[in-house]
Every structure is written in structure tokens, then in C-alpha cells.
Amino acid sequence: MNKKDVIICRCEDVTLEELHNLMKEGYTSFEEIKRILRVGMGSCQGNTCGQLIQRELANFTNTPINKVVTHKVRPLFAGVKLKSIVKALDDES
């Protein structure tokens, strides 16, 4: 398989090859991989890639999938313009 052509994270354009290389280097948790490849830090916040990376990690580390911790969820669920937040404050006062 040409792993360069398999997209794991659409937001940050991360390929399966990059993911596998990093796992081979010893980075075998979502948190570590996120810090280096930016997966889960894009605008979809891991909604698309989280589950794929979880599966790859489970296979690589030979861990049952339910033991593989995936991405943290932080606000916001969808992007909000800064000026929208300001506008809401102006409307309140």
C-alpha cells in the first residue's frame, strides 16, 4: 500500500505513512502523536481522525481498542468567529 496516499487527518493533511513512522519511533499514544503531527488539533477536533488513529494504535501496540485512549475533547465543537463572541456581549449590555 502506498501509505503516502492514505489520508488519516483531513484538517492537517496527515498521511498513514507519517503516522506509522512516528509509531515506529516509539510515539504510541494519541496525545504524543497529536503533539507532533497536529492530528486532532484541526478544525474538526479529531472527529474524523480520532477513530482511525485509535485503530492504527491498537494494531501497532497490540492493545484491545477499548484500551486505546483517543483525543481529548475541548470546546469549541465548531469554529466561532471572535467578532461573533464580541457581538453577543454587545447585545447583552
Binding site: 489520508i7 483531513r10 484538517c11 493533511d13 498521511t15 484541526g42 478544525s43 474538526c44 472527529n47 474524523t48 465548531a78
Partner: peptide, 15 residues
């Protein structure tokens, strides 16, 4: 990577 992208999820998830 400048890859072409199109409609995928239709719910505003995948960018």
C-alpha cells in the same frame, strides 16, 4: 498537500 477535496460528511465535520 494541495489535494483536491469535495463533499464528504455533509454535516460540517470534516472540513
Amino acid at each position: 498537500l494541495n489535494r483536491p477535496r469535495g463533499l464528504y460528511c455533509a454535516i460540517g465535520n470534516c472540513s
